[in-house]
Computed example of a mutant assay.
Amino acid sequence: MAATEKTPMRLIVFLMVLWTSLCSAEQSLGEQAYAIAAQLRDPASVNQTLAESETQIAYELKGRIGQMLAEGKNRQQIETALVARYGEQIRYQPPFSLTTAMLWILPLALLLLGVIAVWRQQRASTRSY
């Protein structure tokens, strides 16, 4: 009789452990989805991540990210799929490339040219006196 009394208790403990592990796995997927959404730009809003935005497309993309995670896709695969669909501008911090390098170098070069032009103008005006 003692063995049959322990069996339901073991089953209950097993089910509790199983439930806890399933809940933590779901929470982990949610956390992963949030982390990915925080690195992607909302195509419908200005300067907001998918995680921050409350637009319709942001909700749809967050759901799509969760669905892709549930399908077993990793962060890289999800980002690649979204970049293929929405273009490189969906990345909040795009990877370094020639295009992104130009975005950094061109303003600095223009600033430098402006400083040189002002310096030369000042130098020419002091010589004329």
Rank of each mutant, 00 (worst) to 15 (best):
T126A: 12
T126M: 13
L50V: 02
Y59A: 01
M16I: 04
A81R: 05
Q67L: 09
Q56N: 02
Y59Q: 06
A109I: 03
V17P: 02
W19H: 05
Y92G: 00
A101E: 02
L61W: 03
T100R: 14
T100S: 07
L110H: 04
R64D: 13
P107C: 04
L111V: 06
V83R: 15
T80P: 12
A124P: 00
E26G: 07
E52F: 01
T4F: 15
E79M: 15
A35P: 09
E71I: 01
T7R: 11
I78K: 12
L15T: 03
P94A: 14
A35R: 14
G66H: 12
S97F: 04
M102S: 07
G66Y: 10
S53E: 00
A58S: 09
K62E: 09
L50A: 07
E52K: 01
R64L: 08
N47V: 03
P94T: 04
A25S: 14
I57A: 03
G114Q: 03
Q56F: 01
L40Q: 03
Y86A: 09
L112Y: 11
G30V: 05
S45G: 03
A109L: 06
Q122N: 11
Q56P: 02
N74E: 15
T126I: 06
E31R: 15
E60R: 08
K73W: 08
I90S: 13
E60M: 13
G66I: 05
R85G: 01
L110I: 15
S21V: 08
M16Y: 11
Y129V: 05
Q27K: 13
A117D: 10
